[in-house]
Simulated assay, not measured.
Amino acid sequence: MKRIGCFHAHYSNIEHIDKALQAFDAELVHFVDPGLDRIKMDADFTQETVEKKVMETLAWIASCHVDAILITCTFFTAVFDAEHHRFPIPVIKIDEPLFEAICQVNQPVVVAFTNPNTVTGTMNQLFAYASKRGKEVDAKPVLLENTFELIMQGRKSEYIRLVAERLIQFTAENPGKYLAAAQLSMVPAAQIAQNRTNLAVGNHLESLADYLKELLNLEVRKEH
């Protein structure tokens, strides 16, 4: 059985990962640190603060007898550069399966965010990912303002409802464009929007299971 350490910025992400990987014979060990997002508006808050804390936590998780690390927060993935930070186990960014899906789309892409602090970093990573694969993506971000505060306050149902409404509205106003939800917390809303519009709305869980199965050689859980 593979053991995967999952690094979250909010407890609400745990259920999404548990559900996505429930079919596999894997143990998920969850590590949650909401602190960085809570202090991001402090006057002395810097990018160095984020990087130092994220790298310290990744080193701690790596020491806890796990076979791989999955970073589920786009705020955290933005500061992790696999070219400069080496670990003895794979470190997987939640964005990677979604980036791969976007690279396969042959139409303009709009990447929707709720957390303003993840926009620049995630878009930079998307273009870098596409470039490494020799792909050109026509992608632009859109921020769903005044939504992220709801999930951070534990108002999950309100968050999902509002984000779903905004996504549905956006698909109606932008025909011919592929819409992708950029954060794990947006998955339920993206699924609602997809069901109501019958249009594909990209999200992290669409391809995460297959991506990790191939990368980590996960085996399907046997029924007892």
Rank of each mutant, 00 (worst) to 15 (best):
F7T: 10
H10K: 03
N13H: 15
I14T: 14
E15K: 03
H16S: 14
D18S: 15
K19A: 14
K19F: 06
A20L: 09
Q22L: 07
A26F: 09
V29Y: 05
V32F: 07
V32E: 10
V32T: 15
L36P: 07
D42N: 11
F45E: 01
T46S: 15
Q47H: 11
E48H: 10
M55Q: 15
A62K: 13
S63R: 12
I71N: 04
T72E: 02
T74I: 01
D81N: 10
H84E: 08
H84C: 03
H84G: 01
R86N: 11
I89G: 05
P90K: 01
P90G: 05
I92K: 03
A101Q: 14
I102Y: 07
V105K: 12
V105M: 10
V109C: 13
V109H: 01
V111F: 10
V119Y: 06
V119F: 01
G121N: 09
G121K: 04
N124L: 03
K132V: 01
E136R: 06
D138S: 09
K140L: 02
P141N: 05
V142M: 03
F148R: 03
F148A: 03
E149I: 00
M152N: 06
Q153V: 00
E158Y: 07
E158R: 05
I160R: 01
R161V: 04
L162F: 02
L162I: 14
L162M: 12
L162P: 00
L167Y: 06
Q169A: 12
A172G: 07
A172T: 09
P175M: 04
G176M: 11
Y178I: 03
A181Y: 02
A182F: 06
Q183N: 09
M186N: 01
M186D: 00
V187G: 12
P188S: 08
I192T: 10
A193M: 08
V201A: 04
N203I: 01
E206S: 10
E206D: 15
L208H: 11
L208G: 08
D210Q: 13
E214L: 12
N217E: 14
L218E: 02
L218I: 10
E219M: 14
R221E: 14
